[in-house]
Amino acid sequence: MDYNLAKNYLDDEKVQWAPMRDGSGHGMAELGEIKKDMVVIGADTIGSSRAKFFADKFPERFIQVGVAEQNMIGIAAGLAYQGKVPYAVTYAPFLIGRPWEPIRTTIAYPRNHVVFVSSHAGLATGPDGPTHQMTEDISLTRCLPNFTVIAPCDTEQARKAVKAAYDIEGPVYIRNSREKTPVFTTEDTPFEIGKAQVLRKGTDVTVIGHGYMTYFLLQIAEDLKDTISIEVINMHTIKPLDGETLLESAKKTGKVFTAEDHNIVGGLGSAVAEFLSENHPVPLKMHGVMDQFTESGSVKDLWDKYKLDKKGTQEILLEFLNKNK
């Protein structure tokens, strides 16, 4: 498949960098034009979460709940029961962590169609520190029945995801990081919820990422191409997991490596491990935030220290490959 990725996207210097929350903000504002039953709910973060793009255009379909995330969830549920399609938008720790039980009871259990759009997922939040760097949101949503969980790979994919989520039944979580990340997909890159993207074919190892980590995996595959043939999968939808694509790739390469800006407990790595251990066990390495709280710092310093950039991830990948020759 031709994914129509950006020109010269593998070059750090030439690729455009932009925050995913920009894409989701624009996506919501664009969708509001055609979907008159769409409502956006903000919680005193509408500037930084980009809910403002919608709020400015459609003030009559925007609700400001203030710093009250539990109420935000209840309001969303009430609107959904009445046939509206609410988008609840704020930082990931407050959107998913703080009101988790109301999400479970009022949205997941009755299968209400509510779209959760976050900012501040993962270490790519930067200097705000661990309270605001949400690294457990995938675990918390993935374990709830009826949920669809999406972690777009860049701002363009975030834009497409918030639009596609309108047509999904039940609750949908779309995970965005705060800081700028490389924009390597384009308007012409296809996107389908639940369909993994094999962005690069290979035969020696399958590497799987979500969010901006997919970009680093593509760079690593390019750099190592003379010695190792790496297959790169963008698993933007973590639930439902595209087992078919995963199985086909694992059968071909016989080794799987996952990388994500999320706790290794309960994230993409766990989802892949659950699937492969039942269907086709192969050597597996899960790379990510190693079940710890991290610290403040610039995103680049955090990536370096916690090995979530290209260099660190490549080091972990090569260790894994050396152990499993």
Partner: peptide, 22 residues
């Protein structure tokens, strides 16, 4: 609505009322 866990009904009722107003 489905209910049980306490304190969640009034929020949902507000959501119903807002939808009616829209």
């Amino acid at each position: 609505t489905s209910s049980g866990p306490l304190g969640e009904g009034l929020s949902q009722a507000c959501g119903f009322a807002l939808a009616a107003r829209m």
